[in-house]
Nucleic acid binder design. Structure first.
Lengths: 351, 351
DNA sequence: TATTTTTACGCAATCGTTCCCGATATCGAT
DNA sequence: ATCGATATCGGGAACGATTGCGTAAAAATA
């Protein structure tokens, strides 16, 4: 029922040659005469011949494609990162296969097995928030599947890692809140098992300490699904906003946490920043258009994707096994907006 | 250098059987004894055998995967639609390969040729705004590659089409503006060649006429890149907002147009809705959190993806060629918020 | 002219899997 | 005991492309 593409065999038959000769002509191999080569090339162009990548994959055990696993493409950070990956991949002649784990351990396993069975030449992975056991990944890695970790990295895996400086980003965001006069700063954190969550917590903690504020573990609430479901954010905020002394600012450690925190405040008529200041990690393109304009810690997502892809392709195309793995740590940028404005400054006209 | 997976040959060798017998056992074919079948199945499970989909694709000329072409995954509408497609595809045992055209004609061609060479069993396509010539798609379709159009459809292609009722959505949005007292309503439209642009323009036009307002072509501005680049939106608004009589409301025909319109207003200190009301198509998850909360026409993106995938799979798995193609047209929903509030109503406390 | 070297091409194996067809064995029936 | 039927399995081709090896013809050398 499916249409049949033109194959090397069709060319061979039409030109009265063998498939090997045709192959050599197309591959511009040695031991081929100039005239037969031209003959084949012309005919191939004429009938619009395209090599079958599946047959090639089967034979060569490589596919010139790289796999991506992220939790959600609807997340701005990830879609920007994917754009970065694609830009580099296409430049090097690689195609990209995108999969989503939706923060599910099972789907992550299914995805990476699908990718490896599809003979991807390598993978770029940001692990799911649910994943605690990484053997499905390390096993493939040890069997020589090149893997680059980005964003949420697997610390135990000895490979390239591309991350944002979470500690510094959290440190600067928290310091920003302190400088603007907020006293009781709580943290809304993602899954406690993720390396980025730990780093962001450390940055938050250190900023408090460096400014002479006591770190209180009670002012940290975790959302194991990274804020993907509103209810867990709601529960966390119900908790954080009923503490004594009263929380007057929130630092949110992930995109969905930040926006869902805003949604909570709107639903509960909490005035930002008068009743509660808010700053959080976010890569949304519209945080400046929010009500109020939202202060954010922004990650260089596109750049992270770019670098990840470059490292992966370097790994794939390297002749000898790479042993010297560097970790690229990129700076996060702080955008201070109205959501963290000092409350004593009674300017009506923001901007 | 790459790891080698366990094949049917390994099982045959280990058990002293032929590959055909092993294949039959795994396929649960007839003409196989119960005991050899169990023997093979047990051993296969033990060594974690997984069939090689590439070899299967080569042999069967199908891959149990479906291709998607959208302009941008960073667009909320498309990422939601992709989620809908994936949910159905996985249910039927299909994998999904996502590609982005970035509104580029060349990339669209490259993508669909890549997908077809990868032996996808079918494609779900929303064409790029740049594309005027559809032969790269119709050609494959005529060679029996199942294709479902969604969102931006190819009118000339006789296949399943899944769209939102653009006319109705535009009609209702425009009527909403009129009912709220706005007089000079301009339209910010996407690429004029797209069917959805035409339908939305018709809806806007009809709503004006039905309410006794003259339709004036001068109050329509087109953005050929669908608002993907801010400058074209800026130019369009510079034009629309300098018309006499003065434009007091804007209806925007696409996601990026709507948000970039807000950005423009913010940059130019235009008060929404006092100086300019705004409603537009958008599938962002947090238009309610924008400043001001944005009135939108929202498409059932997930549902559209779901239906598209179901139709495609129906097409793929149909024994006889399908000739009776229905077009699914889903209703768009209007969310009225502060950005289109009547200006004479002087409520301070919105909600 | 005879021999060697080079050139240019075909043959066949390979990748992992399925499936048609042929082969063998077992069993019941005559 | 012999034959046919059936059950069960192996051999080998096929999918599309590459490639090492063998070999014929052409070219170069003696």
């Amino acid at each position: 029922m499916k249409f049949e593409a033109v194959t090397i065999k069709d060319i061979a038959k039409a030109l009265g040659l063998s498939t090997s000769t045709v192959s050599r002509a197309l591959r511009d191999s040695y031991e081929i005469s100039e005239e037969t080569k031209q003959l084949v090339l012309n005919y191939a162009k004429e009938i619009n011949y395209r090599p079958n990548p599946i047959a090639l994959s089967l034979k060569e055990k490589r596919s010139r494609s790289i796999g991506i696993i992220v939790s959600e493409i609807a997340n701005s950070f990830f879609s920007q990162a994917i754009n970065g990956i694609e830009s580099v991949a296409h430049l090097h002649g690689y195609n990209v296969i995108i999969t989503q784990s939706k923060e599910s351990y099972e789907r992550e396993i299914a995805n990476i097995q699908y990718l490896s069975s599809r003979s991807v030449d390598g993978c770029i992975i940001s692990v799911s928030a649910e994943t605690k056991d990484y053997t499905h990944i390390t096993e493939l890695y040890e069997r020589n599947l090149p893997i680059v970790c980005f964003d949420r990295v697997i610390e135990a895996l000895n490979t390239f890692k591309v991350t944002v400086n979470s500690f510094e980003g959290a440190y600067n965001a928290t310091t920003h809140l302190i400088k603007n006069g907020f006293k009781k700063i709580a943290m809304l954190s993602g899954s406690s098992v993720l390396s980025i969550s730990k780093d962001r917590l450390s940055g938050y903690r250190q900023a408090l300490i460096d400014n002479g504020i006591e770190f209180n573990e009670n002012y940290v609430a975790y959302c194991q699904h990274g804020g993907l479901i509103y209810e867990e954010v709601e529960a966390a905020l119900n908790y954080l906003l009923n503490l004594k002394p009263k929380t007057d600012a929130i630092f949110a450690g992930a995109d969905k946490l930040t926006t869902n925190c805003m949604r909570y405040c709107k639903a509960h008529h909490i005035d930002i920043p008068k009743q509660l200041a808010l700053i959080g990690f976010s890569n949304l393109d519209f945080t400046d258009l929010l009500c109020p304009p939202l202060s954010v810690v922004r990650q260089p997502a596109f750049e992270m994707g770019r670098i990840s892809a470059e490292l992966l392709i370097k790994m794939i195309e390297s002749k000898r096994p790479i042993t010297d793995f560097e970790s690229k740590i990129l700076p996060a940028e702080i955008y201070a907006r109205a959501s963290t404005e000092p409350i004593n400054t009674k300017k009506k006209n923001e901007k």
